Amino acid sequence: MSSTSSASSYTSGPSWQERLEEACRDAQIMPPTFQIVSDRRGGRTAWSSQVTIRGQMFAARYWYDGKNLNNAKEDAAECALNWLSRAAW
């Protein structure tokens, strides 16, 4: 098996960010807007993310190393999607 086929066989479906964007389209609301935030901690910087939908801001639950910024966005998107799926329209 080549590395290309093994890599493509491991797919987990759409990301939390993609799922949130789709949910916003389905609900006919503006797409989510993400913001990256940082916090200086000693000699290092911790990174996180916030996402806003319908004027409601959702923060990622955790702080991440700078090389994992996408994880921070995924975390915030998951929180927002969970809220959106429970929200009564």
Rank of each mutant, 00 (worst) to 15 (best):
M1A: 03
S3L: 04
S5H: 02
S5I: 07
S5M: 03
S6L: 06
A7R: 01
S8R: 07
S8T: 06
S9I: 04
Y10S: 10
T11C: 07
G13S: 04
P14Q: 08
S15N: 07
S15G: 05
W16D: 06
W16H: 09
W16E: 09
E18T: 05
E21F: 05
E22H: 06
A23D: 02
C24S: 01
R25G: 03
R25A: 08
R25P: 01
D26W: 01
A27W: 00
A27R: 13
I29D: 01
P32V: 01
P32E: 03
P32Y: 02
T33P: 00
T33N: 08
F34E: 00
F34Q: 01
Q35V: 10
I36R: 00
S38M: 08
S38H: 11
R41C: 09
R41Q: 11
G42N: 09
G42M: 04
G43P: 00
G43T: 13
R44A: 10
R44Y: 10
T45Y: 08
A46D: 10
A46P: 01
Q50K: 14
V51H: 00
V51E: 01
V51R: 02
T52H: 00
I53V: 15
I53Q: 02
R54W: 02
R54V: 06
R54S: 14
R54F: 05
Q56D: 08
M57K: 14
F58R: 00
F58T: 02
F58I: 03
A59D: 13
A59Y: 07
R61G: 15
Y62L: 12
Y62D: 14
Y62F: 14
W63V: 12
Y64C: 08
D65M: 11
G66F: 04
G66Q: 12
K67G: 06
N68M: 13
N68D: 13
N68L: 14
N68Y: 11
N68R: 14
L69V: 14
L69Q: 13
L69G: 02
N70S: 14
N70C: 11
E74M: 08
D75M: 03
D75C: 09
A76G: 07
A76T: 06
A76V: 06
A77N: 09
E78P: 08
C79Q: 15
C79L: 12
C79S: 15
A80E: 05
W83D: 14
L84D: 08
L84C: 05
L84V: 10
S85M: 13
R86M: 15
R86I: 10
R86K: 15
R86H: 14
A87F: 09
A87M: 14
A87C: 12
W89I: 08
W89N: 13
